[in-house]
Every structure is written in C-alpha cells, then in structure tokens.
Amino acid sequence: MLAKRIIPCLDVRKGRVVKGKKFKNIVDVDQPENLGKFYSDSGADELVFYDITASNEGRKTSLEFVKKVADEINIPFSVGGGVSSLEDFNDILRKGADKVSVNSSAVKNPQLIKEASEKYGAQCVVLSIDAKKDKDGTWKVIINGGRKNTGMDAVQWAVKGVELGAGELVINSIDADGMKEGYDIELLSEITKRVRVPVIASGGAGSMNHFYEVAKEADVDGILAASVFHYGEIKIMELKKYLKDRGIEVRI
C-alpha cells in the first residue's frame, strides 16, 4: 500500500533556507543541502524547495543549490519558485531535481503546464496553488508570493491544471499558513474529490494531530510543513509513529 508522504518544505533565498510567517518576517536558517540531508536521514519521504530569490539574475546563481542537494540526498525532491519557461524546467531537472513546481507563471501561462508535461512527463510537473478564502465562501488563487489575488477559483484552477497535465498538486492555504492551527481540510477535500492525481496539503501544521486530521479527513497523499520541522517542534520519526499508531500508512 502507498504510504502518506511527510514532506518538509524549505524556502530558499539566495542559496539559504529561510522561513517566514504569512510570507513575511523572513529569518535565515541554514544551507539547503545540510538541512536536506538532515531531513532525509530523519525519515522525510520527499523534500520541497521553493526558491524565493526575487530577481531573475539572482535566481540562476541561487539554483546552484539544486545540484548540491542532489549530491547529498537519496530521496526525491522538487524545486519551485520563479519557474516560468521550459528552459527553467530543463535547468532544474538537469541539476538533479525529480520534480519542478510552477505557481504564478502557470496562472499567467497555463500552456507551460501542458508543454512541460508533454516534454518531461506529468510525474515531474507539480502545480502549486496558493489559495485564500473569499467572502463568498469560495477560494481564490493568489499569486506573486501571496501578494496578488487573481480572482480565479482555486478549486477550478486545480482541476484545469490536472487537465493540462500537472501530475501532482500542492495546495497551500494562505489563511492557514504559519498560523499553526491545522490544515484547511475543507479546501483540500474539495480538491481531492475532484482530481485523480496526488494532492499535497500545505499550510497550518502546528501539532501532530493536525497531520492526522488532514490525512484522515481530506484524503491527501502527502503532507507538507516547514517551521514545525525547522525549529524541531515536531520530529519526523515521532510524527510517523504517531500516525502509524492511529492507522495511517506511513514509511517507517
């Protein structure tokens, strides 16, 4: 049986792993390859790196960390952040990443998903969606690192992304991100009901029970978190034992 994946997320800026709350108050943490190796050895099933380096020029240099990570770890990892062309896919995959995730640029140019999927295979195209609940009760797609509300329906965009060829979805709730009050089960359930590709929950982890709740109730395939792992509040192996004791299939 397939195990639910536990996925630490590492935000990288100018080659360093950082973590902020609600995309603000960014603090410096460690080297991506060091933290990557640490998580790989601690039982993480996969790693996600988001390169949040602002400028294009800075990003090219920043991507040097991808090769270092590939040399250090022997579990799958994906890289995203500022990916806007097939060349970006090519660069990242050649440096040794297993998957590439797209976010804002896919909203602006949905064909990127299709082209990348046809060229590199759906399994390495991850569509990452930042969603925020609207007053009308639906979720809207937010782009540009949490700054711009597109007005697009997040659930519909998820379905469209899969039709275009995305092989996996990472659904990040802007409302829950950094709040440590649990994942957005309502949003995630809306999406897992409608798509047939793996869905990764993101945003809101504060306790081990939050992982259990989302695994149990939202039918997600993977659960992503950042600060609870970076600051050692939750240890991955302890979390996996906790989940296993409660009947969730995990790799131990």
Binding site: M1, L2, A3, A122, Q123, G167, G222, R251
Partner: peptide, 9 residues
C-alpha cells in the same frame, strides 16, 4: 490513482 507514485512496501 495513476501514476503509481510514492513509497510502497
């Protein structure tokens, strides 16, 4: 779900 993607025993 297809692809069969992830950790299996």
């Amino acid at each position: 779900k297809v692809p069969h993607m992830g950790w299996n025993n």
